[in-house]
Amino acid sequence: MTGFSKLGGRTWIVTAAALIVLLVVNTLLQHNFLEPSVVQSNLTTFLPLVLVAIGQTYVILGGDIDLSVGAIVALVNVVTVTVIASLGGDGMAVGLGLLAGMGVGAGCGLINGLIIAGLRFQPIVTTFATSIVFSGLALWVLPQAGLPVPEPYWRTYAGTILGLPTVYVIYLVAFLLAAFLAARPFMTRLKAVGGQRTAAFQTGVDLGKLRVSAFVLSGLFGAFASLCLTGETASGDPLMGQSLAMSAISAVVLGGTALAGGVGGVLGSVLGAWVVGMIGSVIFFAGLPFEYQTLVQGLIILAALAGGVLVTRR
């Protein structure tokens, strides 16, 4: 067994192939596609989806699903901008705003996890319900889009840290975090929980703790995604990120993680997120009329999913 197979099945091969095809097509459509500045701008666009997909991977590996990340993104965004604005908008306020946002994200995940693992509710219904609650809270915190964040926030996001573009630093930190978790017993146990719950239980694995941890991670990565989106839009928006949950689930599945749980990994999800992102940009640059874009995007994702499933089944 090679390290690659830990990505999960063979689906990731299809996804990697799709990624290469999309790279070629994009290069043909946009002649400056491979210029560093364009690469950076594309990676910036994809970053929120990548982050949400990483978080979602843990939940799905554990055999659950989190439909509420989109709403968490919105709630984190409005809480962060509100905290920053009410504390006066200086550097201290930005720092506290970021912390508040991450706290909200982790807290939302904790609520999801406790309801699902503790009260044994169905994850798909529960997170659908909590997504409505989180959206409602976001509208209550900030009824209308607006409330700009101070300049240093978005300047830092678009700028560099220690000579590296901030976006790349965030990618790096996210990868390190994922690598850290992958090397801990946590990952094996989580796969056991998603793979064969009774077996994990009989072996004495603490199911509840692991499932709650996965939801907290999903909420936390949702918060990271939200803070990045806030860096891009530079303002509050209670309707932000609505399509992220579904796109992230597509990305995770494209990356070879089984929806049933137990098989897969974060690296595949990152590839999957890039594929989903690039499908969007191919359609845009191919000059397709706006009204067809969503339809074609859906069909391409469906085709990519089908390819992965067919390869795995063989």
């Binding site: 094996t188 056991a192 793979g195 064969q196 077996a199 994990a200 137990g262 098989v263």
Partner: peptide
């Protein structure tokens, strides 16, 4: 246990 305590994916 008879096969019940193994996780097939691992």
């Amino acid at each position: 246990y008879q096969e019940l305590s193994l996780v097939p994916q691992l």
